[in-house]
Amino acid sequence: MRIWPIYKKELRLYFTTPLAWAILFVFMLVMGFFFNLYFNFFARLSMQSAMNPGMGRDLTVTEYVMRPLFSGFLSVILFLSLTPAITMRLIAEERRNGTLELLMTYPVSDGAIVLGKFLGALSLYAVMLAATLVYPAMIWYFTPLEWGALATLYLGLFVLGAAFMAVGLFVSSVTENQIIAALGTFMLLLILWAIGWGAENAGGAVGDILRDLSVSEHLDNFMKGVIESRDVVYFVLLSAVFLLLSLLSLQSRRWKG
């Protein structure tokens, strides 16, 4: 499989156009604002706990700064809206421009095209995550960190990103309109995120299924510093399903008709 040239091309297109830089800029700007918020809050709590001992026993930076920084309500919105920005162009743009026609006549398998594009998007996402490492680095300057919990948190965010990119890639593969691709991705991710919220009301077996399908439920454990195999499997499976759907959508061109 000739994934490498496709992957390289996608990365090149992200970083030689303003796209990747614009996404990184927005992401870091908002994350910086959140970090400032949570860190100040944490600092205030620390001050108070210093005055009445016993209160500060459960006070950790991982729990009070890093976790809300990534899984707080505002951050969720940020992830849900930046994913379409990364993925909407992947296939839709090539379909619209006709470059897909040319690409599909090169001796590159459809699977390689899907994987190359997926890995390209995931790499940009990984760069975004890596850029946020400045926050733990800053904290570490002031106070010791729980490295294990932090690593788990980042692992969770990475597998989450993989699933998100796969969803975005799929939606981008079914339309040639980038706006539709972006909106569709946002809606689909929103549904995947919020589907568990109805679990309480549904109750019983249906409630359990809804909860199991929900992205937020599975991300929770990672945020708490717990790696459960079922959560890892969930994200890997979610990615695989949408990559397969993307492949089918691309291959439908080649079906006899």
Partner: peptide, 28 residues
Amino acid sequence: IGYMPENVPLYNDMRVAPYLDFVAEAKG
């Protein structure tokens, strides 16, 4: 085979030499 479709679809955001390098690599 070398194929040139009608209206020549190309990657507008790439430069000519890197584009041809990509095509050469994709074509093995």
